[in-house]
């Protein structure tokens, strides 16, 4: 393989890996918007909670209490982070979102997400302190080389875990009754209610699924982040951009946009300079808003009557 071809393949691999990380963060956002028409500003903090959960499980509980090896401990930590995200989502829905939904106000839940974000950030700051934690995945130490192209075990894990999570979510939404009901609620909550579907239950379920995905994303992205209580904030702006580029509430669009942004970032670093990453991504976002405001893949939505 020529030098140029090697470089193109290597940066494409880097981009897909980065894109998968973004997709894992962005999917929860788009899911909540798709079903509830609501932006969750606390999503970054759910990711951080997942990262801290995975860190403490992988480095303390699973290794020292359960006696697992590093690799097994990290894998266990991903599932526990997913569970922690789900429990957090359940709690937040029960305590904050459900009571606010009952009042029928659209603005308050939005503001509540900002409150939850501040609460989670400062809670974690009080618990863990501000000094960054060094979260190293054992898979990141394994470098796989195919000729001159390389990637780490962590990249493989992230891509595989993303694909599995996306596949499971996709299958759930397309082929299960609950998934179909959830899509029905996202299209028309009132009519779905008339068909015997319980919209409140499904909205709660959406928050739990999205939070679980955020927790899992935190576990996967944790070994890349500088892990502080504010770590999630470094990826959330990019995740919002991806959700907009992909089409608000559109899963397929989010996946496509996430991978596209990852690849664009890798090639921006190569040919323009890493300092221009944000400029390029947000110019793309503006172009999309002007040229194709519905996103990469537009989803047909009927207006509620």
């Amino acid at each position: 393989m020529s030098d140029l071809a090697t470089l193109l393949v290597q940066q494409s691999i880097n981009g897909v890996y980065l894109g998968c990380l973004y997709v894992m963060v962005a999917l929860g956002l788009t899911l909540i918007y798709g079903v509830m028409n609501q932006i969750n500003f606390a999503h970054a903090d759910f990711v951080t909670v997942g990262a801290f959960t995975a860190f403490f499980v992988a480095t303390r509980f699973a290794t020292k209490v359960l006696g697992l090896g590093d690799a097994a401990a990290y894998l266990v930590s991903i599932f526990i982070a997913l569970g922690a995200g789900a429990v957090l989502g359940l709690l937040v829905n029960a305590v904050v979102f459900a009571p606010l939904r009952e009042r029928g106000d659209e603005l308050r839940p939005l503001i509540a997400t900002i409150g939850i974000s501040v609460l989670l950030e400062n809670g974690q700051l009080a618990l863990f302190g501000p000094i960054p934690f060094q979260f190293d995945s054992p898979f990141a130490k394994e470098t796989i080389r195919l000729g001159r192209v390389f990637f780490t075990g962590q990249s493989v894990l992230v891509v595989v875990a993303s694909m599995l999570a996306i596949g499971a979510l996709y299958a759930f939404m397309k082929f299960t009754f609950t998934g179909k009901a959830l899509r029905a609620v996202s299209q028309d909550r009132e009519t779905a209610g008339l068909m015997g579907i319980n919209p409140d239950f499904l909205i709660g379920l959406t928050i739990v699924i999205a939070s679980a995905m955020a927790g899992m994303a935190g576990a996967l992205i944790g070994p890349v982040l500088v892990l502080t209580p504010f770590a999630g904030a470094t990826v959330i702006v990019k995740a919002f951009a991806i959700v907009i580029i992909g089409g608000f509430g559109n899963m397929e669009g989010t996946i496509l946009a996430g991978i596209l942004v990852g690849i664009i970032e890798a090639f921006t670093v190569q040919y323009l300079g890493s300092g221009l990453i944000d400029l390029v991504v947000f110019v793309l976002l503006l172009v999309m808003l002007v040229v194709r405001p519905t996103g990469l893949i537009a989803e047909r939505r009927e207006e509620n009557v």
Partner: peptide, 8 residues
């Protein structure tokens, strides 16, 4: 806000 330095 850069987290992944592999492209660099």
């Amino acid at each position: 806000d850069v987290n992944d330095f592999t492209p660099i």
